[in-house]
Design a protein around this nucleic acid. Structure first.
Lengths: 150, 150
DNA sequence: ACAATTTAGGACAAATGTATCCTCTATAAA
DNA sequence: TTTATAGAGGATACATTTGTCCTAAATTGT
């Protein structure tokens, strides 16, 4: 469905977004640690997100990644588009090139429903909304640390 | 989302199912041609489907693949399970190991809705139902051939 | 028994996705 | 201007998925 790179990308973007108010800039190491993604790979992904203006970067000392106000209003689907493209939201569930209402594959109508639900979920939700959820303690970007010594 | 192998597998299984009444056995070449999948790769997939008792095979002359009555009543999700496993229907949309209602990722609830819709689509539909649709001319397993010389 | 046919299955090759490493460039402070 | 810091980007390595090829095993008719 969604690539690993894209999932890392969404988590990274949301982490950066969750720090928007503080005004601080985050470097690759901090972001990778927080979202539990490989550092070098995360760097590549952040590069892509910057090029697509999902987040903003600044080189040099005191540089790093941050998000600007207007970027908080972008829908999460922009992140998916930047990394994986929009194909998943259009593709046939059985892999046919030429599948549509007039010439449907056997799963067309039911598959389309699920696919559209996913599209709407990503389209109607903004990066800023999800960042608020995180800051409000209503959702999380990394796995629970189960402390094994209690 | 669903692997290419799995999509070939569903198409192949449905094609075999659509021929259930005729009683004929289909060989790899016929199936691969019909569903527009690479022949050798299709052979592997049919092997998997046979092992999981989605379809049945018979070696030797006049052998091939066919589907038995009880197999027509299996839900399509059995095919997905045989090839890709059930992980996609359970996994977190952002790739977290530990994502649930109590400790949700930022996309959890909306993603779960789409994921469950997909699960239901595959769970509630049987191979036989889709085969009927095909035989009734209501759905198709391969791309339209656009005749370029008219 | 033998030959012909068709699936089973192992080994291997190609393509894609994931991940790392190293150097270059930009920026900021001293 | 120099030095330290941090992202940009190319090259490369590794893993998984996709796809091919060849031989073995099973079945049927002669």
């Amino acid at each position: 469905m969604i690539s690993k790179a894209c999932k890392y990308g969404i988590r990274a973007a949301l982490f950066v977004a969750s720090k928007a108010e503080s005004g601080e800039k985050l470097n690759v190491k901090e972001i990778a640690r927080e979202v539990e993604a490989p550092e070098a790979f995360t760097a590549k992904i952040l590069q892509t997100l910057n090029k697509h203006q999902i987040i903003t970067s600044l080189k040099g000392p005191y540089g790093g990644f941050f998000i600007e106000a207007y970027q908080l209003d972008q829908p999460v689907i922009h992140i998916v588009n930047a990394i994986d493209g929009m194909a998943i939201f259009k593709e046939c569930g059985l892999g046919l090139k030429n599948c549509n209402e007039k010439h449907p594959c056997p799963m067309h109508f039911k598959y389309k429903e699920a696919r559209d639900a996913l599209y709407n979920a990503f389209q109607q939700t903004t990066i800023g909304q999800l960042a608020s959820d995180i800051n409000g303690g209503n959702s999380f970007l990394s796995n629970l640390q189960v402390d094994s010594c209690l």
